[in-house]
Design a protein around this nucleic acid. Structure first.
Lengths: 186, 186
DNA sequence: TTTGACACTTACTAATTAGTAAGTATATTT
DNA sequence: AAATATACTTACTAATTAGTAAGTGTCAAA
């Protein structure tokens, strides 16, 4: 794989997570990387293509994380903690998450990107629901209601606490993070 | 107050809540309202000015809502329900909320807008914390931990469930809404 | 009857946007 | 040695962006 291609994807993702899809341009990338905008078009013919590639990359990383946790035989509590660590890292880097960035811009996204961000969101909710379900059966988690509802509550906590932490720049993310864990303790 | 001015503000707000701050233009507004873009500049010299005015308007509406609920002597449960109804309405109209729209775009906003959206977010959290606190003291709510943390959890649930409902277009918002209420029942 | 404020339109500009077509240097294969 | 593929650059275009300066019609006050 080309180094330039990877640099473009990495920077474009960072720009999406800090400034949003509609606020970043090919010029932002080309000037930062010291290349011409046509070089970006060489690897990613259109902005739609670049955006969609970035989401697919995120899906792949999520899949790999889940696979790795199963391989290492993490229990449900450890799996949840590892999942939440992804958001902890985002918060540390003053980024929001990809769902929280592209979700608000959803109506303005190209169709292919819409499809992928939809897939990614469903995937996260399905996985989260499943560990919340089996974790409760084993007595690792305690909560009321359906696992799917609890998964939605936790995901929305993560997505929006990154956004609100950006606005208030205080400890909002950490407070929400801790509260999620406290609430689930048996 | 000028009708045209109000129409511009109303439409601009709708565009922010459906497409986002960086995806709407003066042209979108002028063509929809059958006026020229210079007419928008007549009322709002800059996009920064328009955006900031819209946030200030939202703050005012929030203040009026709180005032009205206190005047009508709503108990804490009723106050919370009324507050959540604002988001129920947004969801019905396929909009997200102003915090969830401008939060992700925060880094790209003009300074004055940043300040106002910060104020608005703080105001909501402070108010929510206060009714959660007094409501628990009276036995109306039941939850663990600090009122401020619970306020953050509930606000993040609302903000992001609107966003995720937009992406998945299923019942995510309603599920989260119901779970919030169930969790708080004594 | 004139003055002036109000609510715009006309006509424009400079900057930025994604995107393209054609060219070039370098390395690899035939 | 010639042909081909790779990884770009040069040079451009058409569309869109926020914003401005100067003009115009309407109405109310002086």
């Amino acid at each position: 794989m080309s180094v330039t291609r990877e640099r473009i994807m990495e920077l474009a993702e960072e720009l999406i997570l800090t400034n949003g899809y509609n606020a970043f341009s090919y010029q932002d990338i080309s000037s930062e990387l010291g290349i011409k905008n046509a070089a970006i078009h060489y690897y990613f013919p259109s902005k739609a293509n670049l955006g969609t590639s970035i989401i697919r990359n995120n899906i792949q990383r999520f899949d790999e994380m889940v696979e790795n946790m199963q391989f290492r035989k993490f229990d449900e509590w450890k799996q949840l903690e590892s999942f939440l660590q992804v958001y902890v890292k985002s918060n540390r880097e003053h980024k929001i998450c990809i769902v929280g960035s592209l979700g608000p811009d959803f109506n303005t996204l190209p169709e292919a990107s819409k499809l992928e961000i939809k897939k990614m969101t469903e995937k996260i909710i399905d996985w989260l629901s499943s560990i919340l379900e089996s974790g409760r059966e084993k007595g690792i988690f305690k909560y009321n209601g359906l696992p799917g509802n609890r998964a939605l509550v936790i995901l929305t906590n993560m997505v929006a606490s990154l956004q609100i932490a950006r606005v208030l720049s205080k400890n909002e993310f950490k407070q929400v993070h801790q509260t999620i864990l406290d609430d689930l303790k048996p």
